[in-house]
């Protein structure tokens, strides 16, 4: 399944090229806007302009790298009834789908690789303050992203249609991950909410560790592991209930 996900990522090359262009453009636009917002101020909310730009570049790169196609794939396979074949395999359904997503991310990263230098240049990235901490928190954040995507997809076993839910989820997760605006700038209640939600581990936390805005790594890692264990349990529970709800489209 991992191999299939990987090959599919390569099969949709034109998609990836467009993604790359979007990515470069987005980083460029964010840079323009924030440079003008900062004006002559040296820093805001403890972030210098340089650190902020590096943060935004990373957060956007991460958003593309941790983008989960699996929700879309599951939705499609439930709708067309081909989910039958996934369910008929000796290997567990969640394992197949997770493998698929990981392979797909791998393929996506491979295609994204050539543009990463360009993005880093446009986003004027600096040397990481804590490279290892960055990689560890990002990897764990990715696991959370896949778990959440699978959880959202499983709703399809009850409602058949998950297109709208997926879109909503994507918008919310990107916003609360701090892809457009770092969480530091979120006011009062919104900031508190973003602090509680797990989405920050896909964007804000690793990127902030990279630029040195967050110096404590062990705290976030511990919370991430907690989320992974909790979501893992929830997934297994939800799946065992979804199993019993299986109705396959088309007789």
């Amino acid at each position: 399944m991992t191999r299939i996900g990987f090959r599919l990522a390569l099969a949709y090359r034109s998609n990836i090229i467009i993604t790359c262009v979007t990515l470069v453009a987005q980083v460029f636009l964010l840079r323009m806007i924030w440079t003008s917002v900062y004006g002559s101020r040296p820093s805001a909310a403890g972030l210098t302009l340089d650190a902020l730009l590096a943060y935004l570049t990373l957060a956007n790169l991460q958003a593309f790298a941790t983008h989960t196609i699996v929700a879309h794939t599951i939705h499609d396979r439930i709708r067309t009834g081909t989910v039958f074949f996934d369910l008929a395999r000796p290997v567990g359904y969640l394992r197949q789908m997770a493998g698929f997503q990981i392979g797909n991310t791998g393929g996506g990263l491979l295609l994204l690789a050539p543009v990463i230098p360009v993005v880093l240049l446009v986003g004027s990235i600096t040397v990481p303050v804590n490279g290892l901490g960055y990689l560890v928190t990002l990897a764990l954040g990715y696991v959370i992203a896949v778990q959440l995507a699978l959880l959202i997809s499983l709703i399809g076993f009850w409602t058949m249609e998950t297109g709208a839910i997926s879109l909503f989820y994507r918008l919310v997760s990107q916003f609360f991950a701090g892809t457009m605006v770092p969480l530091t700038f979120f006011p009062g209640a919104l900031g508190a909410l973003a602090e509680i939600l797990p989405f920050k581990y896909m964007g804000y936390v690793p990127a902030a560790i990279y630029v040195g805005h967050i110096s404590d790594v062990s705290g976030p890692v511990l919370v991430e592991v907690g989320w992974i264990v909790g979501l893992g349990g929830l997934l297994v529970l939800t799946w065992s209930r979804a199993r019993r709800r299986v109705v396959i489209q088309g007789g």
Binding site: R3, I4, L8, A11, T80, T82, F84, F85
Partner: peptide
Amino acid sequence: RSQLWWDLPLIE
């Protein structure tokens, strides 16, 4: 319906 992956070569 097919268990084959639509966008990939049959061998995959």
